[in-house]
Design a protein around this nucleic acid. Sequence first.
DNA 1: ACCACTTTCGCAACGCTGTTGCCAAAGTGC
DNA 2: GCACTTTGGCAACAGCGTTGCGAAAGTGGT
Lengths: 402, 402
Amino acid sequence: MHRTYAGPGGGRRGVGATAAGGANLPALRSHNTALVLDLLRTAGEPGISRLELAEGTGLTPQAVSKITARLRADALVTEAGRRASTGGKPRTVLRLVPGAGQAVGLHLDRDELRAVLCDLTGAVVAGRRAPLDLGSGAQAVVEGAAREVEALLSEGAAERSGPVPDGAPAAIAGAGRSVPVLGVGVALPGPLDHARGVLHRVTGFPEWDGFPLRDALVRRLGMPVVVDKDTNAAALGLALGEAVGGADTSFAYLHLGTGLGAGLVVGGAVHRGARTGAGEFGHQVVQLDGPPCECGDRGCIEALCLAAVARGDMAEAARVLGTGAANLAGLLDIDLVLLGGRTVAAHPDAFERGVGAVLDARARREGSTAAVPVRIAPGGARGVAEGAAQLLLAPLFGRAEA
Amino acid sequence: MHRTYAGPGGGRRGVGATAAGGANLPALRSHNTALVLDLLRTAGEPGISRLELAEGTGLTPQAVSKITARLRADALVTEAGRRASTGGKPRTVLRLVPGAGQAVGLHLDRDELRAVLCDLTGAVVAGRRAPLDLGSGAQAVVEGAAREVEALLSEGAAERSGPVPDGAPAAIAGAGRSVPVLGVGVALPGPLDHARGVLHRVTGFPEWDGFPLRDALVRRLGMPVVVDKDTNAAALGLALGEAVGGADTSFAYLHLGTGLGAGLVVGGAVHRGARTGAGEFGHQVVQLDGPPCECGDRGCIEALCLAAVARGDMAEAARVLGTGAANLAGLLDIDLVLLGGRTVAAHPDAFERGVGAVLDARARREGSTAAVPVRIAPGGARGVAEGAAQLLLAPLFGRAEA
DNA sequence: ACCACTTTCGCAACGCTGTTGCCAAAGTGC
DNA sequence: GCACTTTGGCAACAGCGTTGCGAAAGTGGT
């Protein structure tokens, strides 16, 4: 008895409305259901009571009761103990059932493929790694990726049924009815079209120009596929994670690895822009007529930052990165800056301190306003793949687009 | 028989939901009504038929019929002729009644106060100008502003009744039942808190620090007041105007006058950030360790740009401005850049060309993507005051916040 | 042990939303 | 003048959150 909740590409602004924005009763229901699910997700292990859900959503307790009753009927939510009484009937604690759905996250890095299988809460159930050669042609890469996904799903199926006594068929064992897989999220660097799932360019591999990656994977795998930039996936994963405050937080994830890019989260949703072009942080010019950059311009922050890294001058690299972060923070009034990527991971303290110093200095100049906090993004190397899985999970919780 | 539509501060994300996000039937209704009103507003003089509204909103024709029936009962909408037949009953054309509501826009500039009275479509019905001395103390300025608003409203009342034959009482003449005034929007430079309507600082006048401008005006005038930065008001006015494409367009309004600031519109709504700090464009650093700026930092775009202007080197000023615009366009993937302010107005061609050249060059480097178009913002000196009035009008059309 | 009280939460009736089925109105074109 | 097309209102309907009320499940005093 599975009903349909807001699926991928469902909602644009608030209510999971039609493309044009008109909202009807099913859309209203999806919206409120997603809101409740998001609070349940955020509450995590301890769980949350109906009345707390009502308070958190602004819905009446009765509406929450009806919504949670549907969710329980669909086995997405269970009752899990009760709170201590405050003089009356104790509140029943509800919890999201993590295993009620899964999604695959795929990270196609320059030379490596990472795949993770995540449950509804975003926790990793199984993971795989494989070498990746983008030069072997689009079809071969698609085929290889599809095989990894299939292998991951069978691992997951074994995992799902749990430690089974003797040779009982996996499909029958435990609570092991087949777990619905929502789809595959794919994250990769470079410019692309998130809405259509088409790559624009892959640096160094012109044969990929304009390749319709999503459609190819949908045909091969027969399940929903969403494609996005690696920085956006990482930012989405962070937005839904513990490092970031509430559901309405705005922050920037700055990724410094072989290149420099950013993922922007505004009001709790990833901001991609109409052409999935947002977050181009690396070619921000911070030195007019400065040293030439690969891109053809001069004084790009990426060129300056990477040059400093190459010299081993991490303090200067952090100062340059901090300048760009301060520019960004001033433009968007964000709440937080998170740093990630291989280079940052190699010198976390230097970057956290250096970037923070620039933001502190700016806040001090402006007067009363508190400085934008800077932290190292948790999650590490697997963060992008986990975020890619969230491309399918997030819509369930009303975190689709900006 | 006036019902309540989405008022100021009503909706945050899409549906005019509660603070927490939960949506109920009245919220759904407000949302759809606002959607219909926005299409009616956009259609303007020619008008729009019910079926076109249905197509535009995604609602069913019957739902549109019900909504427009309510709007007609409330005298916000009238039938205005019919379309040519295509072989059946011709479509009835509906039009927004401009005079069904008014709002006051107040622009407190450095040395001048501008006040405009706008109808529902944003058209100026009446306007006033007066000298302004921020040094005369907060109470005196509030009192002066309030007197201008009152004077404007009586002018408007005369205007409303139209050319009346002989000495008929204005309240009876024509369609002249009293026009509801939605409130006053106030725009002024400098950091402030849009949500609370409190000023943080007014450069050069420390006695204004932390002044609760909104509450003071509400007490004095007894009507709703919304306060915002001048650049945000200008951007809002442009977002609802003809210069900007659809309701979902994202653009930046760059204002170069005595200072340099920006108003950001993302997805059709003004982006202010949690602390109304967004749009600080002028102190973006584009020249590391460059010449010192008033703010205490070095290489700020404002310092470089204004220095070039002072030298009379408009080409260089435009190039610097264009660099900042390109940085911004890359970060947010916006659709359009609009330029305004006294300095731009004095040399429109030089700035439009110069900024455009930088954006074109970047687009060419990136390959296929078309360059972000650059235009001079229409509206001129009165644009900010008109945008301030839109602070009250926009919520009616679902254009509250981001 | 019992009772009064508090608090949670589901059932039932309700108002209001957009939706669907149907039909009158108002045109065109043969 | 008739057949056809298209618009748009009326009426019945399903489904949303809301309200009123009562059962369930505790605490705390007697």
